[in-house]
Simulated scan of single mutants.
Amino acid sequence: MRIASLFNTTLEHIESRRWNPYLGISINNKKFTREYLYDFMAWAAVRTKERVAIVIVDIIQHINNLVFDRSKPISAIDKAFRKAEEVRLLCDQAMSALPPQLSEKIVLLDWTDIVYDPFFCHNLQIFKEEYAENDDFRNALIAITKKNLGSIVSRLDEDAIETLSRYLLNELPELATGFMHDGIHYNLNVYPGRIGSIYSELMCLNFFPRIYSRLYIIGNIASVEAYSEEAPDG
Rank of each mutant, 00 (worst) to 15 (best):
V46Q: 13
R47K: 08
T48F: 02
K49E: 14
K49T: 04
K49P: 02
K49Q: 14
V52P: 12
A53T: 02
A53Q: 04
I54M: 02
I54G: 03
I54N: 02
I54S: 01
V55Q: 02
V57Y: 02
V57N: 06
I59L: 14
I60G: 03
H62G: 03
H62M: 14
H62Q: 13
I63S: 07
N64P: 00
L66D: 04
L66K: 05
L66W: 03
F68E: 12
R70K: 15
S71G: 06
K72Y: 02
P73C: 10
I74K: 08
S75T: 12
A76N: 09
A76M: 11
I77H: 00
I77D: 00
D78E: 15
K79G: 02
A80W: 04
A80P: 06
A80E: 05
F81R: 10
R82Q: 10
K83W: 00
K83S: 07
E85K: 01
V87D: 00
R88M: 11
L89I: 13
C91H: 06
C91E: 08
D92P: 00
D92G: 01
A94K: 05
M95Q: 12
L98D: 07
L98W: 03
P100C: 05
Q101K: 13
L102Q: 13
L102P: 00
S103D: 05
S103Q: 03
E104S: 15
V107C: 07
V107F: 02
L108H: 10
L108R: 08
L108C: 14
